[in-house]
């Protein structure tokens, strides 16, 4: 138990620094940036207290906001996906997750991709709606959501496979 808390605290600060110092400065093709800090929310233990989960997601989003000078956009998007995460857990891993905590490293690859992708797309859409904040620019929002989601998904899968404890 203690170990899980420590791992998550480390993940919180590690991903925050990786996001703000590296990932937000990539600007691939001019404007495409991955939002790797989402991994914290995606991989947060499922059996844990939902209130603390919501709160830590909010805090992480807010910290990213402070670093990137983006108001409260990341915080809003992060809290939203933290709140709706159980729905998507059920959707991608079946009802079984409620009885036993899902170990992400043991799950099926396609299930994991579906779970990651759905939450990433929702997060990015909300994020860019709030960042652009102009209903006339809906095409720009969709374009940015699409490209950044792909980038984030690839990096998330790469990170999870890099740091998975599974023995080969």
């Amino acid at each position: 138990m203690n170990n899980i808390v420590l791992v998550n605290i480390f993940r919180f600060f590690g991903l925050l620094l990786v996001q703000t110092l590296i990932c937000s400065n990539i600007n691939f093709m001019g404007y495409i940036n991955p939002f790797i800090y989402l991994l914290f929310i995606l991989l947060y233990p499922t059996s844990n207290n939902r209130l603390s989960f919501l709160f830590s997601s909010f805090l992480l989003g807010l910290m990213v906001d402070v670093f990137l000078d983006s108001g409260g956009t990341h915080a809003a998007a992060s809290v939203l996906i933290a709140y709706i995460r159980p729905l998507f857990l059920k959707f991608s891993f079946g009802a079984a997750y409620e009885y036993q905590a899902v170990k992400f490293s043991n799950t099926d690859f396609t299930q994991r991709v579906v779970y990651f992708l759905s939450l990433i797309i929702i997060h990015h859409f909300i994020l860019f709606v709030l960042v652009v904040f102009n209903q006339n620019e809906i095409l720009l929002i969709l374009k940015q959501t699409f490209y950044s989601s792909i980038f984030t998904l690839l990096l998330c899968l790469l990170f999870t496979s890099l740091f998975s404890k599974k023995q080969t």
Binding site: F58, D65, G72, A76, V79, F133
Partner: peptide, 9 residues
């Protein structure tokens, strides 16, 4: 939390 974030935005 969501409304705090929205108002900041």
């Amino acid at each position: 939390l969501f409304s705090i974030a929205l108002s900041l935005t």
